[in-house]
Simulated scan of single mutants.
Amino acid sequence: MVEGWFTGEGDGFRLLGTRCSACASVFFPREDTHCRNPGCPGGELEEVPLSPRGRVWSYTDSQYRPPSPYVTDPELPWRPYALVAVELEAERLVVLGQAVPGVTVGDLAVGMEVEVVPGVLHEDAETVRTTWQWRPVRGRAV
């Protein structure tokens, strides 16, 4: 979807953020020009992979077709999806994204552990737009 926001495949899939060398603040989406922390004198920004797991901070569902620039085929019926805000504990950062297909708001709970996985935002004959999605972690050790 946006180049440079994620990398890898399968278990190696990660969102990419940046960390300031002066104050250690982590940013997503990534920041490549200056530290966004207003109390920081500024430092070098380095790319860092973010934690692959986090906990549901909040969630809702999308019952309507979003306007442009969201890419969707207006000829196909709209399929609602769950939208999840996930707190990455190590980074103390909340990242918004869709839940994997088949996961509804009825399947989610605040505090539930989820993991980031690659997903398809939109696909047509010429292009596959890949994004990140959140998948509940079930029956796995933390």
Score class of each variant (00 low, 15 high):
Val110Trp: 08
Pro118Ala: 05
Gln98His: 12
Leu76Pro: 01
Trp78Ile: 10
Ala82Phe: 00
Thr72His: 14
Val105His: 01
Tyr81Met: 04
Val110Asp: 05
Val114Gly: 05
Val120Arg: 05
Glu87Cys: 02
Asp124Ile: 06
Val103Ala: 07
Asp73Thr: 11
Pro77Gly: 01
Val114Tyr: 07
Glu115His: 13
Val110Thr: 14
Pro69Thr: 09
Pro80Gly: 11
His122Met: 11
Thr72Ala: 14
Val116Met: 12
Thr72Arg: 01
Trp78Lys: 09
Gly106Tyr: 05
Tyr70Ile: 13
Arg79Gly: 03
Arg79Gln: 14
Asp107Thr: 07
Leu83Thr: 07
Val116Gln: 05
Glu123Asn: 09
Ser68Gly: 13
Glu87Arg: 13
Thr104Leu: 08
Val110Pro: 06
Val71Cys: 04
Pro74Trp: 05
Asp124Pro: 06
Pro77Trp: 03
Ser68Glu: 15
Ala90Glu: 15
Arg92Ala: 13
Val95Ser: 10
Val103Arg: 08
Glu113Ile: 08
Leu76His: 05
Gly102Val: 11
Leu93Asp: 02
Glu75Met: 02
Ser68Lys: 13
Arg92His: 14
Glu113Asp: 05
Val105Glu: 12
Val100Glu: 06
Val100Cys: 00
Asp107Leu: 08
Gln98Asn: 13
Val71Asp: 01
Glu89Leu: 10
Val117His: 02
Glu75Thr: 10
